[in-house]
Simulated scan of single mutants.
Amino acid sequence: MDKVVRSAEEAVADIGDGASLAVGGFGLSGVPNVLIAALHRQGARGLRVVSNNCGVDDGGLGTLLAARRIARVVGSYVGENKEFARQYLSGELELELTPQGTLAERLRAGGAGIPAFFTPAGVGTPVAEGGLPWRYAADGSVAVASPPKEVRTFDGRPYLMERGITTDFALVRAARGDRHGNLVFAKAARNFNPLAATAGRVTIAEVEELVEPGRIAPDEVHLPGVFVHRVLELTPEQAADKGVEKRTVRG
């Protein structure tokens, strides 16, 4: 039952080339930076990532992008990362853009064992009709385009079918966790982390504070330990190292 690992390197050691990863976080909030850094040092390539966004140019998943370790991304946002945009437009990276709410539900569905669901989001657009550029060729033409999706009518309204997402691994960050893997997320860091965690076949959580089993009241648990397979305790310095995406001050 003790799921604590000794190091970040041990936590990500078996993530191999071509593995698929669901990664929590939104912007710079709740990003498992320590696990991502360990994966960067580990050297796995051809990774297929599912995440709301792919970090920023000098942080989070952006470090793996800069090292050409990511082959494909399923996400909803490209902004704030110029290297992400450059690789996609030059044909070096495959990108499946997905509406943000749909992406969240695809991860939730995958974690709940639901293979597909219907949503009105994207009806009447290239999301449903196909043709979105997943990968560009070097000459700027579309090398791989999205396929059309099934559309059905329920109660007189059209809906398109979206597939649930499961991945080989999930990387998440939590504010507190116990040795059994029960997790608590702080405020906005709750974003995609619980959803990503349920979608991974092997889920690895870095926690800012590790407590003994029983210290987290059942009603306080945001993600039950049944979904978590490895827990990494961060040092105080790692826990406090949190970036600010856009600093705003009042004059």
Score class of each variant (00 low, 15 high):
46 G>R: 01
190 R>F: 11
64 L>A: 11
1 M>T: 06
86 R>F: 14
230 R>P: 02
242 K>V: 15
226 V>D: 14
195 L>W: 07
35 L>Y: 02
187 K>H: 10
18 G>A: 09
112 A>L: 15
59 G>L: 09
213 P>I: 08
105 E>P: 00
179 R>W: 04
136 Y>S: 07
120 P>T: 03
109 A>M: 10
245 E>S: 10
135 R>W: 02
236 P>Q: 12
243 G>Y: 08
160 L>F: 04
56 V>N: 03
209 E>V: 14
34 V>M: 02
134 W>D: 00
153 T>V: 15
172 V>S: 07
130 G>Y: 03
240 A>Q: 14
37 A>L: 13
173 R>P: 01
166 T>E: 15
157 R>N: 07
212 E>N: 09
30 G>T: 06
152 R>V: 11
243 G>T: 07
55 G>Q: 03
201 R>T: 07
212 E>Q: 13
81 N>V: 06
92 E>Y: 07
107 L>V: 08
227 F>Y: 15
56 V>Y: 02
71 A>V: 05
71 A>Q: 12
93 L>N: 01
158 P>A: 03
79 G>N: 11
181 G>V: 05
64 L>F: 12
127 V>T: 07
129 E>K: 03
244 V>G: 07
107 L>G: 09
224 P>E: 13
38 A>G: 08
133 P>E: 01
35 L>C: 05
76 S>D: 11
108 R>L: 15
95 L>V: 15
144 V>I: 15
98 T>M: 15
29 S>I: 13
48 R>V: 09
89 L>C: 11
178 D>P: 06
16 G>S: 12
189 A>W: 00
20 S>R: 01
109 A>R: 04
134 W>Q: 10
145 A>M: 10
135 R>H: 04
51 S>Y: 00
125 T>R: 04
174 A>M: 13
100 Q>S: 12
152 R>E: 14
51 S>N: 08
169 F>T: 03
149 K>I: 00
85 A>L: 11
12 V>E: 02
147 P>S: 14
34 V>W: 01
85 A>D: 02
51 S>T: 10
58 D>F: 13
47 L>E: 03
